[in-house]
Design a binder for these strands. Structure first.
Lengths: 235, 235
DNA sequence: CGCGGGGTTGAACATTCTCAAGAACTGTGG
DNA sequence: CCACAGTTCTTGAGAATGTTCAACCCCGCG
């Protein structure tokens, strides 16, 4: 966190309210309770490409993404990067910090300019014991994340790259709010390859295949038009 | 849970105390609190090979393994099984039941004769709100499980079967209490292959390779003597 | 307009999977 | 205690899938 731009939030700084109020695990709370939380929250900014933490770093904070995107990845013994999650607004990480051993096992890097909110484990623990419903919300979030992670394992272990990619594109398409058929990759194709558990070369080939089959059309480096979703899902 | 043998615990049934008292998430509680928990716990037995639940089943309970072993697995679209966890004494699953959508996403099968303790989500929720420290313990457990799952994803995506197998054997060796070099696989090789994200054929070949290299010696179907752990880890 | 990183393409290679057949083990019943 | 049956495991050969390395291209940007 060397080059990070720290700033302790002032108690009534409404401009940072989003940091707390729009986070799923807090948004069932009353305004008074949110005020209480805001008093223990710090805000930090990272530029695109900056590391938020490294594996092995000690930490005592929960990280909540307020603005931007963060990739969380592991490195295998021979240095290959495996992206395990991409955090967007409202997502959090660093929950291991809550407990005895607070050493990060993963790497976190800002994919774009990003603002992070921090709560120290001591403050968080107090909050959890005082408001058990927050703990329930976090449990809920964990359940989902665990299910996702296990599905990701299964997908990497049993499906071909082609299938994984098709499912990924379909997911992006479903999440897309605009009613166009154009989706935008949230990261570089190099990173996407790492996320899908393959190499940039293979990813490129499969996308080319899809394009040849008229399932998609690529526009620039991150834009993809979905031409035939059904066919994509039958891959 | 069709053929299961249900039995509501009587309040003072000491013979089932282990169901509660030796579970990590409860063992920081006072005896009185454990008594309270025991009153809402049910015990169910399953024979080897019986299904505990299927994906798609609705459920409203947390499952805690008291005796035996349970494999949790997912099925891919083409029917391939991916084992995501093997539960032993004290492990629990079914936490999604805590929340709105209580449909199992995985399959659970008893690997040996097994006794399970059940707590309904309504009872559990009451307990969690009353004793926030239990929620903290579950959060802790989730953190670890999530980290394990993400490591498993990375391992399957970036390491070769040879490496994954070597690490698995080393893990078993480390966990082993007896000071012998003999380890016992907790499941069939077919299941182990599914756990490691490969096929029985490939698993068999890699084990044969290790044996040829004098790293291990196989005895029967589930016993393996570790001859050279260091070499194994350099694979 | 040239530079640089990401992206693409090709060809050889490595790993793993599949299918099929045969061998070994386990536990069961005589 | 042995033999048998059923399963689990092993082995082989060929095919599919994905990786690696190297060269090239192209898009975006100063």
């Amino acid at each position: 966190m060397s080059q990070a731009n720290f700033c302790q939030l002032s108690d009534n700084n409404q401009s940072h309210l989003g940091c707390v109020s729009r986070v799923p695990i807090f948004n069932h709370l009353t305004p008074e309770q949110m005020q209480e939380i805001m008093q223990v929250v710090q805000s930090v900014s990272f530029k695109k490409g900056e590391m938020i933490y490294y594996a092995g770093d000690t930490s005592n904070s929960l990280y909540i993404v307020n603005r931007g995107q963060v990739k969380i990845y592991l490195l295998s013994e021979d240095g290959k990067e495996q992206i395990v999650r991409v955090l967007k607004h409202g997502d959090f990480i660093g929950e291991l910090a809550l407990f005895q051993q607070s050493v990060h096992e993963s790497y976190a890097e800002a994919l774009v300019n990003t603002q992070i909110c921090l709560i120290t484990s001591a403050d968080l623990e107090k909050l959890l014991l005082k408001y058990p419903t927050i703990a329930m919300e976090i449990l809920h979030e964990f359940s989902n994340r665990l299910a996702d992670s296990e599905k990701q394992t299964m997908s990497v272990a049993t499906e071909r790259v082609e299938t994984r990619l098709a499912l990924y594109l379909a997911d992006l398409y479903d999440q897309d709010i605009s009613n166009s058929n154009m989706i935008t990759l949230p990261m570089s194709k190099k990173d996407l390859a790492a996320y899908l558990g393959t190499t940039p070369e293979t990813l490129s080939r499969r996308l080319t295949d899809f394009e040849a089959a008229q399932y998609i059309r690529q526009k620039g480096q991150r834009k993809i038009e979905i031409l035939n979703l059904d066919a994509l899902l039958l891959v």
